[in-house]
Amino acid sequence: MADLEIHNLTRTFPSGGGVFDISLTVESGEFLVLLGPSGCGKTTLLRLIAGLENPDSGEIKIGGANTTRRESIAMVFQNFALYPHMTVFQNIAFPLKLRHVAREETERRVKESSAKAGLTVDLRRYPRELSGGERQRVALARALVREPQIILMDEALASLDAQLRSSLRLELKTFQRRTGRTFVYVTHDQVEALALADRLVVMRNGRVEQAGRPQEIFDRPQSEFVAAFVGNPPMNFFIAERSPTGGSLAVDGIDFKIKPPDGCPAQIKLGIRPNDLHLDAGEGRVALEVVVESVEFSGATYIVYAKLGNTSIRAELPQCVDTGAHLTLFFDSARVHLFDPSTGRRIDTR
């Protein structure tokens, strides 16, 4: 069952931002992540769903009928927006108080939802006395207490430090599974997006650039923008030309041994992810001769910055290499992405 249907939604701002002609369906119990750089309209889209903004045109349908939008949606804000003058209990109970829920019922539901959110602090304390992670759980408990169908989250982990962020990310995902709620989560952090999403929507300039499962978006980016935005370290891009024989693509005169697709333009954008470059030849891999310029240690792997002829190339390797060394890197031609340089759209080789 679809929980949320968005049809041709448009909202423009005098400054030029906004969202344009967005259509999207969110299934019940799905964790949907809206990903994009700042100013891409992801927050505007979330605020439109929440009803904090009104669309210029288009419509938003929320499943389950018979309830108003505000009844079926709860939201967790970037800085949690807890009410500082209320205790944790009063914060979580606030939506119930507005609905005149009886006292015993309120107490029961506040306890229940704080347990679900993993909140273990004394409910008589004030938000200012809590740590960032505890505040996050209070915000979640408050969102959950009136049992909404959909929970919206706006960069809800962005204000926390890195370690807490990754532990809360895991907690959030478990929380979503356990409660079975539909989540719409906004972030500009692609690591967070890939980790959390059941389905990922990449946005750019107020439009949906690509929507799909995270693996699908990572493996088959539909545009150069998505390819560059998702993945860390970012993808290598080259301008490739048809070699004189016409049988393969070449960058700077270096043959990549890739058969140009039918109807391919004279020049084509070619992308390889740094982690698709290997040190071992494998089976049927294409070799590239590079000169190492510098090496960065990133924990588990080494990011190698090298020159391929006159072009810079990044590779993510499992072992350290010497600066200035001549290296042969190998890649699978099936793992190469091709894009039309004029439109930025993906060109499929098969």
Binding site: L52, R70, E71, A74, M75, F77, A81, Y83, F94, L98
Partner: peptide, 14 residues
């Protein structure tokens, strides 16, 4: 007072 807090209250149904 951050606008976010008023918006949260609105979403909560106030």
């Amino acid at each position: 007072i951050p606008l976010e807090i008023e918006e949260a209250a609105w979403i909560d149904g106030a």
